[in-house]
Each structure stands twice: as structure tokens, then as C-alpha cells.
Simulated scan of single mutants.
Amino acid sequence: MKKHTIRVVTRGADGEIRIRDYDSPEDLLKRHTQVGVDDCCTDLSVRGLPVLKGLIGPIPEAPGIVRYESPEVFETLTREWSTAKPARRRTRTQRPEAAQ
């Protein structure tokens, strides 16, 4: 299995986003319960990683980083992402050529 940084994102009692990074699946499994193994993700880099009780993931975040999120964080971040307005692009129209 490739070397990954495993990031767990949850929300603290005070409402703040909490991020904890683990260096290996073994470190992660000391704090979370494995309920299966990912075997269907279209991103092959996360196949074979553990599926954890109470967390959504594994989600590929960046090269070498795999992310797990609590359901509440997943819902909140997905809602923010879906309602964010994309940067507006200007379309250029060609000017009509001067009448001759």
C-alpha cells in the first residue's frame, strides 16, 4: 500500500473544525473502529484503505493525503461547496467591423 497521510476532519464541541493527521492506518485504527475495506472507489489510490465506523471516507484530498470526515462536517462542507458561486468569466464578443 502507498504511503498516505490520513486526515480526519470533525467538529469540536465549540463548533470549530478539528483536523487530525495520522501517518499510518495502524495509528488511525487505535482511535477508530474499522467496519470494512474500500473496494469500489474510482480513485485507485484509496482502494484497500479502511472504512471506519462513524466517518465518511476514504476521500482522496491531494496526492498523498486521504481524508475522512464526520457526517456533520461532510454535510456542511458539501452544502458550502454546492452553494458557492463560481468566479464569473467575462466573455468577449467580437466587435463588428466598421462599415465600409
Rank of each mutant, 00 (worst) to 15 (best):
H4C: 01
L52Q: 09
D21Y: 08
K53T: 02
G15M: 03
R67A: 07
T83M: 15
D38G: 06
V46H: 12
A13R: 12
E80G: 11
R20P: 05
R11Q: 14
P86C: 04
R79A: 13
R47F: 08
K30W: 00
V46A: 09
P60C: 02
T83K: 15
M1Y: 04
Y68I: 05
D21S: 06
F74M: 07
V8S: 08
P71K: 00
L44H: 11
R31D: 13
T91G: 11
K2A: 11
A98K: 10
Q34P: 02
L29C: 04
R79I: 12
T93Y: 08
V35W: 04
T93R: 14
G15P: 10
S24N: 12
P86L: 09
T83V: 13
D21G: 05
A13T: 13
R11F: 09
L55G: 06
D27M: 03
G54L: 03
D27P: 02
I17Q: 07
V8A: 10
A99R: 05
P25C: 06
T91V: 13
V9L: 14
T91S: 10
R11I: 15
E16D: 14
K85M: 15
C41F: 05
E16T: 12
R67G: 08
R31F: 14
V46T: 11
V35Y: 05
R7L: 09
A87D: 15
Q100H: 04
Q34R: 15
P25N: 01
D14S: 10
P50W: 08
D23S: 04
R89M: 12
A84E: 11
Q100W: 11
R95G: 01
L52D: 07
E75R: 10
G48W: 04
L29P: 00
K2M: 10
P58E: 00
A84T: 15
L49N: 01
V37Y: 01
P50R: 04
A62G: 04
I17N: 04
I6S: 02
G57K: 14
G36A: 04
D21Q: 06
R18A: 13
K53P: 03
I59G: 01
P50N: 04
E80Y: 13
Q34W: 05
A84Q: 14
D21H: 06
S70G: 05
T33H: 12
A13V: 10
R90A: 14
T93S: 12
V51K: 11
P63E: 02
P50M: 09
R7M: 02
L49W: 06
T78M: 08
W81S: 15
C40T: 13
R79Y: 14
V8F: 14
P25L: 01
R90P: 07
D27N: 05
A87K: 13
K53E: 09
Q100R: 07
P96V: 12
K2T: 03
T10R: 14
E75L: 11
P71R: 00
E61S: 07
A84G: 09
K3V: 07
P63A: 07
V37A: 01
E72F: 03
V66M: 00
L55I: 09
C40P: 00
T42Q: 05
S45T: 03
I59Q: 03
E16H: 10
R47M: 02
L28C: 00
K30S: 08
K2V: 10
C41G: 09
R92N: 10
T33L: 10
